[in-house]
């Protein structure tokens, strides 16, 4: 068991899983920014899977599957994590309390909908939200939820409900924490390797449901919405933006975090080419934001504009071109 000798400190982050991992590792002795945690996990992705539906809408993701950041970091950095799930809620609660009693901080998977501290308008049924519990006071858990500016509190019965909902991506009470950290990490060696691998995964996918090809596929689908029912088209477009902005990062679907990672990596390795690619990635992120803004204007409840499906398709295709250029830079070097 790792024994931190520093008091726990809450950190505000853009995304839950990378935020939790950065905090857990930093607390236990491996200082890591959120951007580094995200980049080093190799979890950057794009996926558009029309046949997997969430609330009637296709799966669109700007990162790999939940838990990919935890597992990617474990593999790429040589960290050993303890991940435990439970067959019964009471067992999960008992295990959490035991760990807290020993002074551990613990990462948890939970459902956003059942966490009362979330604003009403953000409570959707998303079961793979990550947070840290750092203490218990009476019947309340003290929670460091990285997407919140300040620590929050949650009643024991509410957290238990949120940890044990059933359904897609059911958390099954998952709790996790690092148990062993590597003595030394050779960033000079691993950073270029991870970046190259991430880029290759974006460029060379066998089927057009992942990587850059999936961005083209989504663009084509959006172009074809022209022929569909307008209400459905608006909901579809809103869904694209929501996946891009909300259940990801408060930016451009993880592209800004990745640019921040490239910048930090460039400084660490003193590598100008990485710093240049960070600028390219920032421009990609800006374009995703422009795309979101185009959509927002066409779905606006008041003063609604005509939807320019063709324009949206072209915009998305130009994003795919821009992303391809960044990834090519990595695979060719």
């Amino acid at each position: 068991m790792l024994k931190p000798d520093i008091p726990f400190k809450h950190q505000h982050a853009a995304h839950c899983e990378s935020g939790v991992m950065a905090q857990l590792l930093s607390h236990y002795g491996l200082p890591l920014s959120e951007a580094m945690a995200f980049g080093l996990s190799g979890a950057l992705m794009f996926a558009y899977i029309p046949f997997v539906k969430l609330g009637g809408m296709p799966l669109i993701a700007y990162r790999r599957l939940p838990k990919a950041i935890i597992k990617g970091l474990q593999k790429n950095l040589g960290i050993k994590m303890e991940l435990t799930t439970f067959s019964r809620p009471d067992l999960g609660t008992a295990a959490l309390d035991r760990l807290l009693g020993k002074g551990q901080i613990v990462g948890l998977q939970s459902s956003v909908f059942w966490l009362p501290y979330f604003p009403e308008d953000m409570r959707f049924h998303f079961n793979a939200h990550n947070l840290i519990v750092y203490a218990k006071a009476g019947d309340e858990y003290l929670i460091s939820d990285p997407v919140f500016e300040n620590p929050v509190r949650c009643l024991s019965k509410d957290l238990e409900k949120a940890r044990f909902v059933k359904g897609m991506l059911a958390p099954k009470g998952l709790l996790y924490y690092p148990v062993a950290l590597p003595e030394e990490i050779d960033f000079n060696l691993i950073i270029p390797k991870i970046i190259k691998k991430t880029a290759r995964a974006m460029l060379k996918t066998p089927v057009p449901i992942a990587g850059v090809r999936a961005i083209y596929a989504l663009a084509k689908t959006i172009g074809r919405l022209e022929t569909k029912d307008r209400r459905y088209a608006r909901l579809f477009l809103g869904h694209v933006v929501r996946m891009q902005e909300e259940i990801g990062t408060g930016g451009a679907g993880f592209r800004f975090i990745y640019a921040s990672f490239l910048q930090e990596a460039g400084d660490l390795l003193d590598d100008q080419s990485l710093k240049d690619s960070s600028l390219m990635m920032t421009s990609v992120g800006d374009q995703w934001r422009e795309f979101a803004l185009m959509i927002a204007k066409s779905i606006r409840r008041k003063k609604r504009q005509e939807i320019d499906f063709c324009g949206l398709q072209k915009k998305l295709e130009s994003i795919a071109v821009a992303e391809t250029q960044v990834y090519r830079k990595f695979t060719s070097s």
């Binding site: 308008d121 953000m122 959707f124 608006r234 909901l235 809103g238 869904h239 933006v241 929501r242 902005e245 909300e246 408060g250 934001r289 979101a292 803004l293 959509i295 927002a296 779905i299 606006r300 409840r301």
Partner: peptide
Amino acid sequence: WEAEAEATLQAV
């Protein structure tokens, strides 16, 4: 961000 809020409110 307004664009994001628009999409969220649409879903809500």
